[in-house]
Design a protein around this nucleic acid. Structure first.
Length: 228
DNA sequence: ATCCCGAGGG
DNA sequence: CCCTCTGGAT
């Protein structure tokens, strides 16, 4: 029996999954800790290939030492930039990829100071010109920082679960995003990602998905299968 | 396709 | 030991 005949159309199933997610995770929000949009941007860059829990362990000291774009850019310090970057690297070291992340955070901060008056720009086109900022990071900053939903945030969890749920065949995040944008109502794009991430962390884990405890199993073509 | 990178789980 | 964690640049 085909997936379509057993579960209805892809779009119907997507909306049924969305409705169930809203019940399962009614209060789901971005789990990164931050006070300003700049801090949200920095925390999101740090979250690459790293748990949010770990990011939240380093950001209190990080944001105390470097509270805004100007301080991250090194403009208000007499110290040479290299010394400053080493200090930044030390503060974020445990998040992994720390050399690239430090370089990107400082590069992004400098560009924000030089070209945007120290304020995080509010468009996708501008955000993705910042070093270390791709479409995923830009979507997070736009949605949570500015309330602008231009697309669906596709990270490792959203990609994995959307594929397991039979809503896309692709691996490429851009194509996954395009499929999800067609299947889901625009006002739900952002909360879809947040809730799917919660579900991915708690139940539909990358290595060993807990299909026995999954409230979406009746809507999932991969449930109980080893073919995932 | 490959590299960057540490920490935690199994 | 190997895999994964809210990726992005080359």
């Amino acid at each position: 029996m085909s997936v379509a005949s057993k579960w209805g159309s892809k779009k119907q199933r997507a909306e049924a999954i969305l409705a169930k997610l809203k019940i399962l995770y009614p209060d789901a929000t971005c789990s990164l800790d931050y006070q300003t949009t700049l801090q949200l941007l920095v925390a999101t860059i740090l979250s690459a290939q790293c748990t949010d829990e770990r990011v939240n362990k380093v950001t209190p000291a990080l944001f105390k030492r470097f509270p805004d774009a100007r301080s991250l850019a090194g403009c208000d310090l007499a110290k040479p930039a290299l010394r400053e970057r080493e200090e930044l690297e030390t503060l974020i070291r445990s998040t992994g990829f720390y050399r690239n992340k430090a370089k990107n955070i400082q590069g992004a901060a400098r560009k924000i100071v030089a070209e945007y008056g120290g304020e995080v720009p509010q468009t996708m086109a501008e955000l993705i010109t910042l070093p270390g900022v791709g479409r995923k990071t830009a979507n997070v900053v736009l949605a949570h920082g500015f309330g602008i939903v231009e697309g669906v945030t596709v990270d490792t969890h959203v990609k994995r679960l959307s594929k397991r749920l039979g809503l896309t065949e692709y691996q490429d995040p851009i194509r996954v995003e395009r499929d999800l944008m067609k299947l889901l109502p625009q006002p739900d794009w952002e909360n879809w990602s947040i809730r799917l991430i919660y579900h991915g962390r708690a139940i539909c884990k990358a290595r060993s998905p807990n299909c026995d405890d999954c409230q979406l199993a009746h809507l999932c073509p991969s449930a109980g299968s080893s073919n995932i």
